[in-house]
Write a protein that binds this DNA or RNA. Structure first.
Length: 342
DNA sequence: AAATCGGGGCT
DNA sequence: AGCCCAGATTT
């Protein structure tokens, strides 16, 4: 509602989830997250693993780690800072999110500059310099857009209006200029170059990497899993064991060398030892990953060493803090193994 | 300034 | 098969 101030906790969670993520993808995660962690205190006292479970499949897992750290910091502070600088000093909150929380939750007259606003700025002011180099310039010009009294009086609505304009009319391709309220003041439209802006520098090509992961199941349907290191790619999420991904493909002989528990593989399934039961292709931002999923039934999962992982009942695997990649690997592996059994 | 960091939906 | 998305952090 106009002029209403939103709950800063809710605004914070939604803005973090919406970073580089579509509204459609966020909505179910948002509701589930608030149900599981209703307030700052609930989030701060929860174990990180539980937060990663709620984040499972949403991507960019440093957001979940920083969210948890930030909740602890907010408890220390006694609540949210109400200004942009204070907000931006918190973990996981950069220039955009600080401005968004300040405007939407606290009514501070600032303009959160996201991809939508950058695009609007590039067109209104006909900025031809390519992204991402032009970021600073686009942001500097965008913050002049709210100088009118309506924007000053209703910062939250103005921010939302910019987002809506970028999402419905001033879209990346084929913008609907004829419906745009700023049609006459848009410099790019005057020049007829609105559909070409903002310009972007070509992206580097995406290399391919190769991985192997093992689906090891014992007679009681227990699966061996482990936790990835707490930092870096998919940091803190649960995965099937396997060697580090590399730039070259894996031969069957190499796989046999690195397979865990080779001495305990059972022939109960009549599966040739170390059979590929499925292949998974997964595209990350900066490389494409091709994974061979190998499966075997082992006589019993031994008490694994810390770095080897831990056993989990098959029916509970779905509730682990899996990445989407590992969800695919588990499903592919289980289905492939079933094919051999049946 | 460039690289890292996910995943899905749309064209 | 690219391109995009309510970006932040590290190098």
């Amino acid at each position: 509602m106009p002029g209403e101030v939103a709950d800063p906790y809710h605004v914070w969670i939604s803005e973090i989830m919406l970073q580089q993520t579509t509204v459609t993808a966020v909505i179910p995660y948002y509701h589930n997250f608030l149900e599981r962690f209703p307030d700052i205190e609930a989030l701060a006292r929860a174990p990180l693993d539980e937060v990663l479970q709620a984040w499972s499949g949403l991507g960019y897992y440093s957001r979940a780690r920083n969210l948890h750290r930030c909740a602890e910091e907010l408890i220390r502070l006694g609540g949210f800072p109400r200004d942009v600088a204070g907000l931006q000093a918190l973990p996981g909150i950069g220039a955009y999110t600080a401005a968004a929380i300040a405007a939407i939750a606290f009514g501070v007259p600032v303009v959160p500059v996201d991809g939508n606003v950058e695009r609007i700025s590039a067109r209104i002011f006909a900025v031809r310099a390519p992204m991402p180099g032009a970021r600073k310039q686009l942001a500097a010009k965008a913050v002049t857009l709210n100088s009118g009294p309506a924007a000053q009086n209703r910062p939250s609505d103005f921010a939302q209006a910019l987002f809506d304009l970028g999402a419905t009319l001033c879209v990346p391709r084929s913008p609907a200029c004829v419906l745009c309220p700023w049609q006459k003041s848009c410099q790019a439209r005057k020049l007829g170059i609105q559909a070409e802006l903002p310009r972007k520098t070509p992206k580097a090509e995406r290399p391919t990497r190769y991985g192997v992961h093992f689906l090891l199941m014992d007679e009681t349907d227990q699966l061996l899993v482990r936790r990835r290191p707490p930092q870096g790619l998919l940091g803190g999420t649960i995965e099937l064991p396997g060697p580090e991904w590399r730039e070259t493909m894996w031969s069957a002989d190499e796989v046999a060398e690195v397979a865990p528990f080779s001495d305990r593989v059972s022939d109960a399934l009549r599966v040739p030892q170390w059979t590929i039961v499925g292949k998974v292709r997964h595209v990350f931002t900066h490389f494409t990953l091709l994974i061979d999923v190998y499966a075997a039934q082992v006589n019993m999962l031994p008490n694994p060493r810390e770095e080897e992982g831990f056993p989990v009942a098959l029916e509970k695997v779905g509730s682990l803090a899996l990445s989407s990649l590992m969800r695919k690997c588990v499903e592919t592996g289980v289905n492939g193994l079933d094919d051999y059994v049946s």
